[in-house]
Amino acid sequence: MPSESFTNLPEEKQHRIINAAMNVFIEDGFDKTSTNSIVKEAHISKGSLFHYFGTKKDLYLYIVDLSIEQTNELYDLIDLKERDFFKRIDNIVKVKYDYQNRYPLLNEFILASLREQSTEVAPTIQPIYAKITQDSLAITFENIDWSLFKPEIDQQKAMEIIQWTLDGLGKKLLATAAPMTDLSEEAIKEWKEYSKILRSSFYTSSN
């Protein structure tokens, strides 16, 4: 956990430090990441970084905790009574991009962490992420009305196509958005366009 001096910082500065750290960890991996690179990108002193977090490992695991918090909050807000898969995804997209506005690199950090091989952090984080991934997928598809899909549609492949679309949308928005842009509204707007196409492809004509 970070020190109280970090949590007392203005939110903008907290986000700048965390986003800088995520960027370096994504690029270099845990073992090769230099704290010099982090403090340079975050525009703080090395002494401040260690005062806030103690060690590089503490900083890394704090960001892992943020990703867990994001995932838990995201799936706590899913309305499991909504059985239309696309309407459920609408809700997921909104919450996801609210987080993405604060930490634009969080999803990339999660993916990088899943590939992390460092013996210092991998044994701690990989079982956590494995369980979160399994739980989140189960919740996403829980109580879905599969009768809405065309009978000839392979459900697994349909889910993969939808996930690839969401991933691609995220990368597109991050690559083209101006600094400090609120991605939530744009993400929802674009997702609705994609979902119309996907819905017409996967659902029966009556839906």
Rank of each mutant, 00 (worst) to 15 (best):
W146P: 10
A20N: 05
P179M: 04
G47Q: 07
F202Q: 03
M159H: 01
S205F: 07
F85G: 01
G47R: 03
T133A: 10
I17L: 06
D135T: 04
I139W: 05
F149M: 11
E41D: 11
F109Q: 04
I68M: 06
P151D: 08
M159V: 00
F202L: 11
Y203C: 13
E186S: 13
I128Y: 01
K131L: 15
P104A: 07
L174R: 07
R88Y: 10
P104Q: 06
D28T: 08
A187M: 02
E12M: 08
D84P: 05
L137A: 11
L74A: 10
S201Y: 12
V121W: 04
I125C: 02
D31C: 04
Y62T: 00
F85V: 00
V39Q: 02
L166R: 06
K150H: 12
T165A: 06
L74V: 07
S147A: 15
Y129I: 02
D58E: 15
N91A: 10
K189H: 15
N19M: 06
P151A: 06
Q70Y: 14
L105H: 12
K171I: 11
L173D: 11
Q117L: 08
E11C: 06
F85K: 00
F109T: 08
L77A: 15
Q14S: 03
L59S: 07
L105Y: 15
Q70F: 13
F30M: 02
R16E: 12
T119Y: 06
E142N: 07
D65I: 03
D28E: 09
K81E: 15
K192R: 04
